[in-house]
Structure formats: structure tokens, C-alpha cells
């Protein structure tokens, strides 16, 4: 966890794992809401940039949640 995108990817996936057991739709809702509520804009910006760059390492639900969140933003 040296560089920032790695750390944010790790954090986002950690959130994703909590919601995993609630099924895809509720998980995507839960993850996007959590990131929207608790992440500062510069963190969101960085993770969106990472998503644009291919989003490597992001779990599937997390990726969907970030796509959803970006549409809202």
C-alpha cells in the first residue's frame, strides 16, 4: 500500500466485502452510498480517475457502485 490509488482500491474493496453478502443490487447501493457519505472529494476524484484508467483491482460490485456514483455526481 505505497501509492494512493492502491490504497483507495483496497479501501473500496474492503467496503465492498462488507456488503457482498447482501446481493448485487443492495451491495452496489450500499457501497456507493458509503463512499459518497464518507469519502472526501479528492479521494473520490482519485478513485474515478483510477476507474477511467481501467480500474484494475476493483471488485465487480465496487466497480458497479463507482460507475453508479459517478453518474450521480
Amino acid at each position: 500500500m505505497s501509492s494512493s490509488p492502491d490504497k483507495l482500491v483496497y479501501m473500496a474493496n474492503q467496503i465492498g466485502k462488507f456488503f457482498q453478502s447482501q446481493g448485487h443490487d443492495r451491495a452496489v447501493q450500499g457501497i456507493s452510498e458509503h463512499i459518497w457519505k464518507f469519502w472526501d472529494p479528492r479521494m473520490r476524484k482519485q478513485i474515478f480517475a483510477h476507474l477511467d484508467a481501467g480500474g484494475s483491482g476493483l471488485d465487480a460490485n465496487v466497480r458497479d457502485a463507482l460507475e453508479k456514483l459517478r453518474l450521480q455526481a
Partner: peptide, 18 residues
């Protein structure tokens, strides 16, 4: 209206220069 940085995020942002 945007949430700010939490303590660990502050540290990361400091190292990053923001």
C-alpha cells in the same frame, strides 16, 4: 457540503502533497 478528510486520509493527503 462535501465531507472532509479523516485523520488517516489527512496523512495520506499530506504525503501526496495536497
Amino acid at each position: 457540503k462535501e465531507p472532509g478528510l479523516r485523520i488517516p486520509n489527512m496523512f495520506d493527503a499530506a504525503i501526496e502533497g495536497t
